[in-house]
Write a protein that binds this DNA or RNA. Structure first.
Lengths: 121, 121
DNA sequence: CCTTGACCTCAACTTAGGTTTAGGTTGTAT
DNA sequence: ATACAACCTAAACCTAAGTTGAGGTCAAGG
């Protein structure tokens, strides 16, 4: 199954310009075009997009994602680099989760304090 | 105990210019100054800073943090608004954690795939 | 035929969140 | 006395990540 940029945007809750921007940044080197010039996303492209969004949504800058994409295009020689990168990202994400949980606790304590404050009046 | 901007920066792993920037954005309306003009953070200021950083680090934009700060300065009348805001932020943060955990899983699957790839060679 | 909708490019613009620079004051150590 | 460190302001500058606008192509429907 093939998808237009508009369909991909809807599926992934992105804007069309965001997708074009990513393409211009070199994140979709695999993308095909119709004769007319329209971008065509196939199933593989959607799968690849998923991992790219995953990296982006865990805070990886586009530059670094591009490095990952470039390595992927370079083939199996770069598997060690990509593995290393993903392991580092795993560590980052685990830390993110711990930090966020700590902040959640503080917010919940603030809520408790504000609720006591409300009852006093 | 009182602290200079440099000490506060070190304690919270921020840059001095970041703290001055936040002050200029109106996040520290309570801040005192020496006669010379230097900012002075007391224990209360540090506590307040902690909740501000907590909101910032869970993705709240500075504009919204400023709203929270303004309400705090307006006194007890605004407790309901602040409570509402913190409850919404709690919801956001819970969702963030869930999303991040989902992304973590995808990254771990990618790691597993890359490791299988490595062994093949 | 002609208009509407979905796509295209390229360049300019925007926004958030800072950082940097230039020029200045003050307090302490040599 | 002078030099150094730590603070100050205001304004200019910077970067990342997009968005917007002008101008254009194509296919389908009325």
């Amino acid at each position: 199954m093939n998808y237009t940029i508009g369909q991909v945007a809807k599926i992934n809750h992105l804007s069309i310009s965001q997708l074009r921007y990513y393409d211009n940044q070199g994140l979709f080197p695999f993308l095909k075009r119709t004769e007319k010039g329209d971008r065509v996303f196939d199933e593989d492209a959607l799968k690849f997009l998923e991992i790219i969004l995953c990296l982006k949504n865990t805070g990886m800058p586009i530059k670094d994602i591009k490095q990952f994409v470039d390595w992927t295009m370079d083939g199996d020689d770069t598997t060690p680099q990509r593995l290393e990168m993903m392991k580092q990202q795993e560590i980052n994400v685990l830390q993110q989760i711990r930090d966020t949980e700590e902040n959640l606790l503080k917010i919940q304590q603030k809520i408790a304090r504000l609720e006591r404050e409300m009852k006093k009046s």
